[in-house]
Amino acid sequence: MLAGAVVAVGALLTACGGKIGENTTQQPSGSSGAAQGGNTNKDLELVVGVKNEPFYISLQCGAETAAKAAGYTLTTQAPDKFDATMQAPIVTALGAKKPAALLIAPTDDKTMAPQMKQIKDMGAKIIEVDTALQDTSVAASSISSDNTKGGELAAQTMAKLTNGKSGSVLVLDTKAGTSTTAARAKGFEDELKKSAPNLKSVGIQFTDNEPAVAAQKVTAAIASTPDLIGVFATNLNSGEGAATGLRSAGKVGQVQLVGFDASPSEVEALKSGAFQALIAQDPATIGKTGVEQAVNAIEGKSVQRNIAAPLVALTKDDMQQKAEFFYKTKC
């Protein structure tokens, strides 16, 4: 059932277009339940975490497809960096547009709350996609991967890759206050203690979502931790930086690298052996489901508060059989 659903979403992605950062607008077609119910505001706003990142492009693709099917207009915007100081003005400016709903991946689980509350107070429904606020009273629905389980899956995968060998493992998180990656890191560390007592975490280090910083953290860990046997990178940029650090140190394949996400560059790196495994999300389903929940909220239908999207572990041996989980660079 899962495979069929994912393939169906993948087929729908070919119908939409544009990249995040182009402020693309998906125009509605046909009638919708909103029109039948007398609701004339069918404007949806999607504000994702950062421009032109394959995860968010794939999420946008799924959202555009669902919005068009429901007869709603969807406009997508994003900051240049995964930074609350850059995302906050985008959200504040939406007050002038008064959308029917705001779908958002908040870049900080505390500091984005005032801007999101402001849009909610103007009558818009708030739907969180990918990331979420600590304050659960703001959003009507939150759709994301089960990030704790994703971290657990990464630890189980690391245990298989190291095959009973003892050693230390480094965890790379992005920024403090990012709900998704924090859950992945914690899930990984907790599960590592259960699944691989032969492996010891040397702690969580932050990369500021910059590949260059991640590379530096890895090379420093190799120098300071002679028994380093694995690295778990909790997001795309940290993973790409970690791969660079391992290449620079001549440790590719010797230190097992488990990344999160499945961008085109990560997929190629998995194929070449720079990564030993990837924990892939299903961003298109997150975007599609987010729009569906937004429409339900606008039209007074039942809304589900928390929804988990699927996750899957990819290795070089099985990656082609799971190609539907590879992320897009355009719709």
Rank of each mutant, 00 (worst) to 15 (best):
G4A: 12
A5E: 13
L13S: 03
L13V: 07
T14L: 09
A15M: 08
C16M: 05
G17R: 14
G18T: 12
T25P: 05
T25D: 05
T25W: 09
Q26F: 00
P28L: 04
P28A: 01
S32F: 02
G37Q: 14
G49T: 08
E53V: 13
I57V: 15
K68I: 10
T76E: 11
Q77R: 11
A78M: 07
D80K: 11
D83V: 10
A88C: 00
V91N: 02
L94S: 02
L103K: 06
I104M: 04
P106Q: 00
D108L: 04
K110W: 00
Q115P: 00
E128Y: 11
T131A: 13
D135W: 05
S141A: 15
K149T: 13
T157P: 10
M158K: 06
M158C: 07
N163A: 15
N163F: 08
G164S: 11
S166A: 14
V169K: 02
V169L: 11
L172A: 08
D173V: 03
T174N: 12
S179K: 08
A183P: 02
R184D: 04
G187T: 04
F188M: 05
F188T: 03
L192V: 00
K193R: 14
K194Q: 13
N198H: 09
L199E: 04
V202C: 09
Q205I: 06
F206D: 04
P211K: 02
Q216M: 10
K217R: 13
T219I: 05
A221Q: 10
E240S: 09
E240R: 06
A243K: 01
G250Q: 03
G250N: 04
E266A: 15
K271R: 14
F275A: 06
Q276S: 13
I279Q: 07
A280C: 08
Q281P: 02
Q281R: 10
V291A: 11
I298E: 08
K301D: 12
V303C: 03
N306T: 13
I307K: 02
L311T: 06
V312D: 04
A313Q: 08
D317N: 11
D318R: 09
E324C: 05
F325I: 05
